[in-house]
């Protein structure tokens, strides 16, 4: 049996490809908000991180949100800190944007637009997917 200290040391050096999969509208479920909280914590661990926004998840990073009238905190602008936290690869699925009549101009983050088949390929390359 290996010495626990050695295990800890070796796991420090592991760098995995991890992707956050954001699929839900910003309000209606807590998933995007608590998903964002996971992103901010995992970002401290020097892993190879990325995020993809698809389905109604594209609304989570739509500009001009004002949820005051539903009595909920606006966390959308916090997504802007992601590149500064080391999550620089941020993808948006092309079909999800188009189906909702949105363009990159409507988003509050700089993103790379990729089509469904590219999203599939990106997911296949990951070691870990965090779906929220």
């Amino acid at each position: 049996m290996a010495n626990p200290e050695e295990i800890e040391e070796s796991s420090d050096e592991i760098v995995k490809k991890m992707m956050f999969v954001m699929r839900k509208a910003p309000h209606g479920t807590i998933n995007p908000y608590e998903g964002l909280e996971v992103m901010l914590i995992v970002a401290a661990y020097d892993q190879d991180l990325s995020a993809v926004f698809l389905d109604d998840g594209v609304y989570a990073i739509k500009k001009g949100q004002d949820p005051k009238e539903i009595g909920v905190k606006d966390f959308s602008t916090t997504f802007r800190v992601l590149p500064g936290y080391g999550i620089e690869k941020i993808y948006v699925e092309k079909e999800s944007l188009e189906n909702r009549g949105l363009t990159v101009e409507d988003l509050l983050l700089e993103v790379e637009v990729v089509d469904k088949s590219e999203v599939t390929k990106l997911m296949q390359e990951q070691d870990v997917l965090f779906p929220f």
Binding site: S11, K16, M18, E37, V38, I41, V42, Y45, Q47, F130
Partner: peptide, 12 residues
């Protein structure tokens, strides 16, 4: 515990 535990689980 905290979300760091989830990160450790994902890594290890």
């Amino acid at each position: 515990s905290g979300l760091g535990q989830l990160t450790d689980l994902a890594i290890s």
